[in-house]
Simulated assay, not measured.
Amino acid sequence: MMIEDHDWEELPLEERPISKFPMLGSFKAINRWRDLEFHGDFQFYGGERGDWHEYLARSTHGQLDTIVVIPENSMLRPVSGRV
C-alpha cells in the first residue's frame, strides 16, 4: 500500500507568485510516494449503479495476500449508524 507524502521547500523571493505579498506562495510541496509496508486487514468498498460492494484485503509485511468480497449478511459489515 502506497501513500503520497511530501516535504515543503521554501521558495526564494524572486520565485514567489505575488511580490506584493511575499508570504503567499512562499512554500512548494515536493511530492513522493512512500510504501507503508502495511501489515493487517484493510476494509474498503465501492458501488456502481446502486450495487454496493465491500472487500477485505489482507497484507503481511507490505505484501498483499488476499482480497475477498464481504458477503452482505456478514458480521464484518458495519451496522448502519455505528462508526
Results as ranks from 00 to 15, higher is better:
59 S>W: 01
7 D>Q: 15
55 Y>A: 12
26 S>E: 14
25 G>P: 01
36 L>A: 04
77 R>F: 03
58 R>H: 06
26 S>N: 07
34 R>K: 11
55 Y>S: 11
2 M>L: 10
23 M>T: 14
8 W>Q: 11
80 S>V: 13
16 R>G: 03
21 F>R: 15
81 G>K: 00
70 I>S: 04
25 G>R: 02
2 M>W: 13
23 M>D: 15
63 Q>K: 12
38 F>N: 00
2 M>N: 13
70 I>Q: 04
49 R>Q: 14
21 F>W: 14
50 G>C: 02
44 F>W: 06
68 V>Y: 01
60 T>V: 08
40 G>L: 01
3 I>Y: 09
56 L>R: 07
12 P>E: 12
62 G>A: 00
74 S>G: 03
81 G>T: 00
26 S>F: 06
81 G>Y: 05
50 G>M: 05
55 Y>I: 13
77 R>T: 02
16 R>Y: 03
39 H>V: 02
74 S>P: 02
14 E>Y: 06
21 F>Q: 15
23 M>A: 15
63 Q>I: 10
14 E>C: 03
35 D>E: 00
41 D>N: 07
78 P>S: 05
60 T>W: 10
57 A>Q: 04
46 G>R: 03
68 V>W: 01
53 H>I: 15
41 D>W: 15
11 L>H: 02
81 G>M: 03
53 H>N: 10
76 L>E: 13
51 D>G: 14
58 R>I: 03
54 E>I: 14
78 P>F: 10
48 E>A: 15
62 G>S: 01
4 E>I: 14
58 R>K: 06
28 K>Y: 09
25 G>M: 06
68 V>T: 07
76 L>A: 14
83 V>S: 12
72 E>V: 11
22 P>V: 02
22 P>A: 04
30 I>V: 01
10 E>T: 06
78 P>E: 05
23 M>R: 12
13 L>P: 04
12 P>T: 05
47 G>R: 09
38 F>V: 00
80 S>H: 13
32 R>W: 03
20 K>L: 10
61 H>N: 09
61 H>M: 08
81 G>A: 04
78 P>A: 00
22 P>W: 05
34 R>A: 07
55 Y>W: 15
45 Y>N: 13
54 E>H: 11
41 D>S: 09
64 L>T: 02
28 K>E: 11
81 G>E: 06
12 P>A: 10
78 P>N: 09
4 E>Q: 12
8 W>F: 13
9 E>T: 04
19 S>D: 11
56 L>F: 08
69 V>H: 10
56 L>I: 08
54 E>N: 14
12 P>D: 09
16 R>S: 05
68 V>Q: 07
72 E>A: 12
72 E>S: 11
43 Q>N: 13
72 E>L: 10
50 G>S: 07
